[in-house]
Design a protein around this nucleic acid. Structure first.
Lengths: 187, 187
DNA sequence: CGCCCCATGTAAGACGTTACATGATTGA
DNA sequence: TCAATCATGTAACGTCTTACATGGGGCG
């Protein structure tokens, strides 16, 4: 398999795994929820659906019957579910942190339903592990540029550092949330 | 003018405004600093440079003379500087917050050198203004989904909220930094 | 001489954006 | 009946990614 699925493809896969939906449904979800970052334009959604179907990740069935508008509802296939799980459980690398956290957070958001709570916990722990060296490196970079860059330059870098620190705090909070839940609830 | 410059184009413009550079220099900057998010591949940089030159934003001069390898150094033109300033001073809208803060932070990072410290301050204030309603909306969204979504779902949303809160705190810190600097230094 | 870094570029392909097109159905 | 919404698509265009190509120059 030469090309892997695009970010939009995985977002669709994750949503469909929650509940079967039509292209139009997905567009509404993308444009109305906090997933606005993903397309929502028909020129992106429908081709993405066709690609996923061609790869065997999803299957669309035309809803017919009582005088209905043509409407195609898509469901995740077993193969699609396997691929979704694989993508979610990829180890978190440094590039995942630097290239916008959107993708990682999407994987985490889908993780519980797709793989289970203990997998979500695993993602969180690997995120925490990846964050520490990254923060250290950014701190060093700040020391370097602070004397030579304009104020707005190093302030911007500090902004990044702070956001990663807040992410680290969140990950600890999320870990403890899951640990409580796993100890108390699912036993 | 039909197309505006791409994000990469503005990144290049901002860097060149700091110091003239060749395509290769830019590639090194992009791949070595915390601007890794931007391309750095020759297939992106060189076409972008040609586009900018075609639009009259930059001008390249081939360094010749003492037995040198062919090397083209680019400089920002007055027109390019105007365009860079316009882009930096665009009002900050909600979409700028939701669609990754990369662009906004890039604009801020370049602002001081390109337009001046008081412009940086203006950007920070407009950011603070844009953040408040955004945070309120995210808080409402959290209330909505918390009962119905899986734990990883609302935790992911909380992560977003926390990062915007940290951004708000940073903006206040940056504002006070600039206010001190403007009162004390440049008078 | 062979190898690696400098420095620039091109070609194929995937993806997303914008804008337009098409029809069915619901409601005023 | 006229507009709005549902629901799906297509075409043109621009940009990025990946991979390859090309040559000069320093160095062991």
């Amino acid at each position: 398999m030469k090309h892997d699925t695009s970010a939009l493809g995985y977002a669709i896969l994750g949503l469909l795994q929650g509940k079967p939906a039509s292209g139009y449904d997905l567009r509404k979800i993308f444009s109305s929820t906090s997933m606005r970052t993903y397309s929502s334009s028909p020129g992106a959604i429908y081709p993405a659906l066709r690609r996923l179907e061609r790869e065997g990740m999803i299957r669309g069935t035309v809803e017919d019957g009582s005088g209905l508008r043509r409407r195609q509802v898509f469901r995740v296939t077993p193969k699609g579910l396997v691929e979704l799980r694989r993508w979610i459980m990829l180890p978190i690398a440094r590039e995942d942190l630097t290239s916008g956290l959107k993708t990682v957070m999407l994987r985490f958001a889908f993780s519980e339903k797709a793989v289970g709570a203990s997998a979500s916990l695993e993602i969180l722990r690997s995120m925490e592990v990846a964050l520490r060296p990254h923060l250290r490196e950014l701190g060093q970079k700040l020391e370097e540029i602070r004397p030579v860059a304009p104020t707005s330059g190093w302030l911007a870098l500090e902004c990044g550092i702070r956001s990663y620190e807040s992410l680290l705090q969140w990950s600890r909070y999320a870990i403890s949330t899951y640990e409580k839940q796993l100890k108390g609830g699912t036993l």
